[in-house]
Design a protein around this nucleic acid. Structure first.
Lengths: 350, 350
DNA sequence: CTGAAAGCGCTTACAG
DNA sequence: CTGAAAGCGCTTACAG
């Protein structure tokens, strides 16, 4: 059978600058100059060095060069998200990757699963590998532990959720405004009994969206009915059963506001199962795949996901380039996308 | 205003082992022993060192320790996918991350967008950072350039698509078998004119799925009609228009096999737009989010995505642990999930 | 334009 | 059990 030996049985040692220098008959320092593209090298020597490098299959060791280097260009950044497998997180990751790629920077990622302990552990793991910067969608509610890292020179930008007890840049959506406009939209179609189904209130974005829900009810002089409010819903199945219970109430809601994409999907399932997807209105926060292909299409408050990731990355690279301006929290607006589920009027017979 | 100075204006230098040693009044080497958990250190000294490390906020520099270290435990692996924002890619990423996390290994990622040049550039970028291993969903059709890296000790595992011209481990789905069973399923419902809509035939998985399509037709003694075959479809929109053109033929297909999730979604849109989602049968390769919530639900050939990623990662870590067994291509079976769109019989009136 | 020496933060190999 | 010296692959700071 053809083919090499798998694993690392034949360890042909990787060539170093020293090997290239020996083959080219120059000093190690000259190789360093050529590899780093320093102009002041004799063209003939440059030629010899390049030829030797190619012949040996030389690849610079960035990890070693960064060790001694003072004014290092950024080479690697870390990114912490809620869950890499979730469309919102992965859209943010791709946006950050794109901005990083333009600068030849690579991205390390980690999923937090809403676990504050995991947040701290992964931050440490990134720091131990000396990443140049960190984009963080935090899980915990106290980021003061990061002040040491910030002062040690690690640039930080928070994304989707602003940091707590720490002064660094952040890029977030207008959660309260978006939620408020969702509820206002439902009110505009005549709904008075609007339920709130949301994630754990300890998650900052969930709290802000709940605040938006309350604000719109207050502006409409509608007293909030606690029986129509459910927090702590963190999965599709939990949302489905919560919605079913809501709709089994003696005086059920005529409309539902879902604070997050998994919750929205769970509610859609419940409405389908109960065959009332054409009676009970629904607006969800966060767009999600195939939302337009459902019957009816899901009306949502969409975040500018791609832009959030890009702006956060640009901010990080600006800091890495030496930007000393005051920290800033960028708030991006949301958009209401009407697709049918949010444009139903209250049924008379319910 | 409270808060520190942003950026890196106040660079309080990060403490080193030398600093910890000085504060604890021991040698650098003793600190190294404590940090690495070597048992043979006096408990009192260990105590002093730990106290000094905590007081200074010391964090080991993994990048520096790996430089001299001979038998390094893996600390970072790289992963190349088609597109981190696509659900298939991000599911694979999360699965690899999970396996890596159990070993305190971090994952660098990069999206290739089906670009072979980008594949080579990103592989080089990973190598330059001296990742311990690489999980690759390749874009190009020749991976022989990687043999040097493999021989230099970088462990490689291919995922979803086997490598070409290179002998390394791989984990793939049974693409031909899955596609074949999809078409067999449609034949079983009485369809004789079954269209194929697929991605570029130069993509290995697409070619294999097309082979499965042909095999099932041959087994049923149906001659393939070239007018019902469309390759090179790489986006939802392209799939929608291709499907519309197919259905406008004088003798349109009664069923469609879509070789990939984006194609399937595009076909669903076309069928909805033409109001024939209850007449034309559809089976797609790859499951996709909310496929069960459509009307009708989308019948698909599902890959074991999570398992593919996990098996690939386990294989990589086995190699990193010194496994010298012959290279292996693991082929995982697919599953047909019936949801309605694939269980329609040919309409008499078409 | 070129190179020999020292150093980045750590581990190895070797003494005590 | 503890430590001084050399070295990992590279850059810096300094001579020539």
């Amino acid at each position: 059978m053809a083919g090499g030996i798998p694993g690392r049985s034949v360890l042909r040692a990787r060539p170093t600058m020293r090997d290239v220098a020996a083959l080219a008959g120059v000093s190690l320092k000259t190789v360093s100059r050529v590899v780093n593209g320093v102009s002041s090298v004799d063209p003939q020597m440059t030629e010899r060095v390049n030829a030797a490098a190619v012949k040996l299959g030389y690849r610079p060791n960035l990890t070693a060069s960064n060790l001694r280097r003072l004014h290092r260009r950024p080479s690697t950044v870390g990114m912490l998200v809620e869950n890499a497998a979730n469309p919102f997180s992965s859209a943010l990751m791709r946006a950050v990757e794109n901005a990083a790629h333009e600068r030849d920077v690579l991205v390390l990622f980690g999923s937090l699963d809403e676990d504050p302990i995991r947040e701290r552990k992964l931050v440490s793991a990134f720091i131990d590998r000396r990443v140049d910067g960190l984009v963080i969608v935090p899980a915990g509610s106290d980021q003061s532990y990061l002040s040491t890292e910030r002062d040690a020179g690690t640039c930080l930008v928070f994304l989707d959720r602003a940091p707590m007890l720490l002064d660094v840049d952040a890029v977030v959506s207008d959660n309260e405004g978006g939620a408020s406009s969702a509820v206002a939209h439902l009110l505009g179609f005549g709904h008075r009994r609007i339920a709130y189904l949301g994630d754990r209130a300890s998650i900052r974005t969930a709290a802000q969206r709940f605040a938006g829900y309350r604000r719109s009810l207050e502006l409409a002089h509608i007293e909030m009915d606690d029986r129509l409010v459910r927090h702590g819903i963190h999965s599709i199945d939990a949302a489905t059963s919560a919605a079913k219970r809501l709709l089994a109430l003696p005086d059920p809601p005529s409309a539902i506001f879902a604070s997050q994409n998994l919750v929205t999907i769970g509610v859609v399932r419940a409405l389908s199962a109960l065959h009332c997807h054409d009676q009970v209105a629904l607006v969800g926060f966060d767009d999600f795949p195939q939302a337009d292909m459902l019957c009816p299409g899901a009306t949502v408050i969409a975040q500018q996901t791609e832009q959030m990731g890009r702006v956060a990355a640009e901010r990080l690279f600006a800091r890495l380039d030496g930007d000393q301006s005051p920290t800033e929290v960028v708030v991006l607006p949301t958009t209401l996308i009407q697709r049918g589920s949010g444009e139903l009027t209250p049924s008379v017979d319910r």
